[in-house]
Simulated scan of single mutants.
Amino acid sequence: MWLPTAWQIKNFSATTAAVFSIYFFTYFLVWAVTTPLQHSLIPEITAYASLLFLPHGIRVLATSLVGAMAIPGMNLAELLGNYWFWGIDSVVPLVAVSIASGTVTWLVFEGLRNVRINGYYINVTSEPPPFHVFLLAGILASTANAFLVTAIMEGGMTVGHVTPILAAYVTGDTTGLLAIMIATKHVMPFVGQGADWQPISRVAHSPHFFCSDQGRVAATNE
């Protein structure tokens, strides 16, 4: 029976805490800054989606850097953020939306990897994936998440009502991704110089943490 070592538990916990903290902080920024401003201009859209949704940028960046290890921190941040900031207090929709939003980006990255488009930057001493790969992964993840969340929360709406909501989701996620990418474009190439990231990278490659070691290494080296 395989059991994680103390070192693996420590690094997994540190990664989860870091992802949760950053993700939840961007949730707070959306709630405290962008949502009030948006509500004063276009209140009809604000009830459903933010047009500058910074957490989506963190979803894409965290998934690229640590793979599936980002999922627990994002799921927890989604759970608390959806409850405190968006007012989803019904247990089943709250849990369903949080799991969907916290997991779908990794599923998209894995799908892209399976068609030989690598968006992972787990081997942080190598060249990062091209910007258009991040953008593609972000748009695909946003679209999938928008459909899932809308189906869970607004399943009875007609196509005419759903379409602008989906468009708002994808627009807000894409602008949030671009904002995060602009903010980090000078940081990512130097992340590999920090020794603390190397254990996280090795843990993320472990087959015990959701992903295939052989497949991930092959994709990284392509």
Rank of each mutant, 00 (worst) to 15 (best):
M1V: 09
W2A: 11
W2Y: 12
W2G: 06
L3W: 09
P4F: 04
A6E: 12
W7L: 11
Q8P: 06
S13C: 09
A14I: 08
A14D: 06
A14L: 14
T15R: 11
T16F: 08
A18W: 06
V19Q: 11
F20V: 04
I22A: 13
F25E: 09
F28G: 08
F28R: 13
L29N: 01
A32G: 01
A32K: 15
V33A: 13
T34H: 07
P36L: 05
L37M: 13
Q38T: 05
H39R: 15
L41I: 13
L41R: 01
I42Y: 03
T46F: 03
L52Y: 04
P55G: 12
H56E: 10
G57W: 04
I58E: 07
I58F: 08
R59L: 11
V60L: 12
T63K: 01
S64R: 04
L65H: 03
G67I: 11
M69V: 04
M69I: 02
M69D: 14
I71Y: 01
P72D: 03
G81F: 07
N82S: 02
I88V: 15
D89M: 07
P93Q: 15
P93M: 12
V95D: 11
A96F: 02
A96M: 08
S98I: 09
A100D: 02
A100E: 05
S101R: 13
S101G: 15
S101N: 15
T105C: 05
T105I: 02
T105V: 04
W106N: 14
W106Y: 15
W106K: 12
F109P: 09
F109V: 10
E110G: 09
V115K: 15
V115P: 12
G119V: 05
G119L: 03
I122G: 12
N123H: 11
P130V: 10
F131N: 10
F131C: 08
H132D: 07
F134N: 11
F134P: 01
G138I: 03
L140N: 09
S142G: 14
A144G: 07
A144F: 09
A146D: 08
A146F: 05
F147Q: 12
F147P: 06
L148C: 06
V149K: 05
G155F: 06
G155W: 10
M157N: 10
V159H: 03
H161P: 03
V162M: 12
T163P: 00
I165E: 02
I165P: 01
A167C: 10
Y169L: 00
V170W: 02
T171K: 00
D173H: 02
T174P: 00
I180A: 00
I180E: 00
I180K: 00
M181V: 05
I182H: 03
I182T: 14
I182G: 10
T184C: 15
K185T: 08
K185R: 09
P189V: 03
F190T: 06
F190K: 13
G192Q: 13
G194R: 15
G194Y: 12
A195H: 13
P199Q: 13
P199L: 12
S201K: 11
S201Y: 05
V203M: 11
H205Q: 10
P207F: 01
P207H: 03
H208V: 02
F210P: 04
C211W: 00
C211P: 00
S212G: 10
S212I: 01
S212V: 03
Q214D: 12
V217Y: 02
A218V: 06
A218F: 06
A219Q: 02
